[in-house]
Amino acid sequence: MNLNPELYLLSSTCLVVQIACLLFLIKFYSQQSNSIFITTAVVVVANAMMVVIEPMLFQLAEHYREVAKHAWYIIFTLIDLIAIYALFKFHKLLGIKVSLSAKFVTSAYMAFSCIQILRFCDRLILETNFMQYVYQVSIPFIGVTMTLVILYNTVMSKLKSVDASKEVLG
């Protein structure tokens, strides 16, 4: 088990883009973009956790290969669950309407978890390895799509707030 440098670079790049979106949202904060702000913040934290934990799991695999295999799927599914829970809880606590981007991110995390579980069954229970290619392609694909959606919503929220302020000024 070795860390794939290309995939790791891709997920790190996604994280950098997401952090830039979060900083942009903090700079141009408006009431309208509350849900987008929360969604971006949750995605940044979840993605940062994944980027930090991934090399640790590879280090663990050098000494305890079997444990690392099991821990891999459990930890990533757990991070997805934490992200969904945080999204749900923050929206509920602050009484914010759930935006389309929040729904998309929740669906993406659900998809992540389903793929993790399918891959777990495929690799460790059935030992067929059918899902290897699907897993290697789908996880980065969903990650990149999620980043693009966040980027699009960040830009759109700024444009909307500019339009709203123009309307107020007449």
């Binding site: 444990v67 099991h70 459990i74 969904i84 669906s107 978890s113």
Partner: peptide, 24 residues
Amino acid sequence: MIFVSVFILSVLIIFHFRFAKELF
């Protein structure tokens, strides 16, 4: 070990669906 992992993953996926459903 495999049973423990399956159990943990089953619990996690149940909570996934629950929170996602509540959000929607």
